[in-house]
């Protein structure tokens, strides 16, 4: 979707605060831990990201990073029926899980971290349409739902530099559909994308439905 999250190449953001540490406040650490430890229903990472993309646009640009996560975690759990809006606004639970969660020790959290190593590959019944070395062009069509083709790379020609086999397709995942598409890394010259004279390039990981032969 054409939201404020699609930031690549946008002008006017000013200098980067290069000294900013990973966390400044305790609540940021707690939100990170909550995001990784409060169980969720069967939503996909793609629909999770699509939730943030749909938040109030002014809030997207001004709210602290982990507050966007916080609002998104709550919104998804209300969507899934795990929380009600009343529960979160009053702080009073209408139902409880039985038995309550038992605490994890350090070994348990390390195991949980390792177990979070998700494999996104899928078996593909169809052969790939492209091979490394092929020239391809990205589609130039706006998508109203979730997509991982950034607007700065739409309608441009590049070269396939890698084929990764089938990977769960983000656009379908955001609609609850677990379906693979061939995934490629495509390299675009800085001249093609930005009209630059520098010898630089941009590499993006793009699914086959985003691409046509150039």
């Amino acid at each position: 979707m054409d939201g404020p999250h699609d930031l690549g190449g946008k002008d006017g953001f000013g200098a980067i605060d290069i000294d900013a540490p990973p966390f400044r406040e305790d609540w940021e650490r707690r939100q990170w831990a909550l995001s990784k430890n409060v169980p969720s229903g069967p939503n996909t990472i793609d629909f999770w990201r699509h939730g943030i993309e749909n938040m109030d646009h002014a809030a997207y640009l001004t709210q602290p990073y982990f507050i966007k996560w916080c609002l998104n975690e709550i919104a998804h759990r209300i969507d899934q029926g795990m929380f009600t809006m009343d529960e979160i606004l009053t702080g009073i639970p209408e139902s409880r899980t039985d038995p309550p969660a038992s605490p994890l020790d350090m070994e348990g959290t390390l195991a949980r971290l390792r177990a979070n190593n998700v494999d996104f590959r899928t078996q593909m019944a169809t052969p790939p349409a492209f091979s490394p070395g092929d020239r391809v062009r990205t589609l130039n069509t706006p998508v109203s739902g979730h997509t991982r083709l950034p607007s700065y790379a739409r309608g441009h020609e590049g070269t396939v530099i890698a084929h990764h086999g089938g990977h769960l397709y983000a656009d379908a995942g955001a609609q609850g559909e677990h379906r693979g598409e061939h995934l490629y890394t495509v390299e675009f010259t800085a001249a093609e994308l930005w009209g630059s004279d520098d010898p630089d390039s941009n590499c993006l990981d793009l699914w086959e439905p985003y691409l046509v032969r150039a």
């Binding site: 650490r29 309550p100 969660a101 348990g108 959290t109």
Partner: peptide, 13 residues
């Protein structure tokens, strides 16, 4: 709601 234990959050941090 019993979805997570506070100690788990502390240990994760």
């Amino acid at each position: 709601k019993g979805l997570v234990a506070q100690e788990t959050i502390d240990t994760w941090i």
